[in-house]
Design a protein around this nucleic acid. Sequence first.
DNA 1: CGGGCTCTTGATACGTGTCAATGTTGGTGG
DNA 2: CCACCAACATTGACACGTATCAAGAGCCCG
Lengths: 251, 251
Amino acid sequence: MASEPRKNPVRVSCFECPLRQKKHFRPFSGDELDFVSHFKRGDFNADAGATVLVEGSHSAHLYTLLEGWGFRYKILEDGRRQILNYVVPGDMVGLQGAVMAEMQHSVEALTPVTLCVFERSRLFKLFEKHSGLAFDLTWLAAREESILDEHLLSIGRRTATERAAYLLAFLFERGRTAGLLDDQRRHVPVTQMHVADTLGLSIVHTNKTLRKLSDRGLIQWLERGCEILDPEGLQSVANWNPGDTRLRPLI
Amino acid sequence: MASEPRKNPVRVSCFECPLRQKKHFRPFSGDELDFVSHFKRGDFNADAGATVLVEGSHSAHLYTLLEGWGFRYKILEDGRRQILNYVVPGDMVGLQGAVMAEMQHSVEALTPVTLCVFERSRLFKLFEKHSGLAFDLTWLAAREESILDEHLLSIGRRTATERAAYLLAFLFERGRTAGLLDDQRRHVPVTQMHVADTLGLSIVHTNKTLRKLSDRGLIQWLERGCEILDPEGLQSVANWNPGDTRLRPLI
DNA sequence: CGGGCTCTTGATACGTGTCAATGTTGGTGG
DNA sequence: CCACCAACATTGACACGTATCAAGAGCCCG
């Protein structure tokens, strides 16, 4: 397995939240931290490959990914699958189900994951009492939207090679700002099947496209994952660069 | 032009908001209505084809479309364009620019449009004082996300014919719930170029694909627009059905 | 040891893009 | 009023990108 063995599934207190201390997240106020620690119901651990949330359900919960990689996807009746976006630590999951009628997509773990579980029914209290956190929630939703916009541009208008380069540069950037990757750890834990289902390509063509990127020294493919050798190179192939990397909120 | 001539550009008061009275929108409380009417700065009218918002800008404003059709899009440096989503009355526009650093997409009017202009700087007050409206804002963002998810599935995994059928069924549904269309008025004001740029297809192939739908009696193409003859037929070709059509919020 | 999952590669078929040419419509200016 | 032009829609021929089919290798795990 690509990632280290899961930590002991001990309840993680918000006060010692390992994420909050990382540099990319904005600090909480004391009040907010207090509220969130009550908002949180517990932890949820899942193995790689596990389905965390399923389309059509109307869960009583809402999650934040604390550790690991995951992805959101939809499938058509005949099994064609489209990966919509990836989930890294700090990302909120299940907001759709919490706010609207039901989930319109599923979520699967790519590595072993830990999620913070929040109680859906207390969400309205968050809006009522903590406008700063409510704003953050909207911020997160707006950012998800802008990522989906870029994906749409990618699938709709970029060539296969550009798409692949974009995706890998994007995943590296997301992993980096989530503290999963850095100059030493450059391993993105996806299979070529995941890449294919994200780019809207067949797996065979994906393989041939990735080979081109390997041949140019931009990446190296290993079993069950990809080593990002040259993030800037990928960005320039894709004609993309990461947007705003300033402090982001965390809930 | 497909739509009737623009109404006199008189300031529209929130108290007589023509949208709020339509059945698809949730009613405001008196307090909320009061607040929104102060939040609103004025109206903004634009002609068909006008660019309403441009990528990279950081506008002091935030908008709700009051009347007409528009669309959001992104372009690559060499001019390739991807239409991300369409905007109908009741849709909020520019939230990204208001919440994050700057707009990551542009918005263009498809018909003459009227927009309500809100003051960005008062947004934090909305969160502070009107948690119901703040929740609505998040609701709108979550719904936009779920639409983009479906588009992504469409472009990534549906065939050209399915994609086209999906798009037209989708546009009919959006127009219908926004009060722009009904069983009598079935005209969607897009060119084949718009369809092509939404589906990620070339214009020539789009033309040939639309012809198939015409031949099957599902649509009829007119100059600068499309008559939706059989919405359910389109839905079944695309293997898609509109989700939650319950009351939606309006800001 | 077998079987599943992942990655790889070559051959061929098909969907979609590109090029080119034409017709229509509506608007503009002489 | 007509000539002209721009935008939009249409069609056929051909090229290219991508899907599909098929086969095989390496690996891990039961």
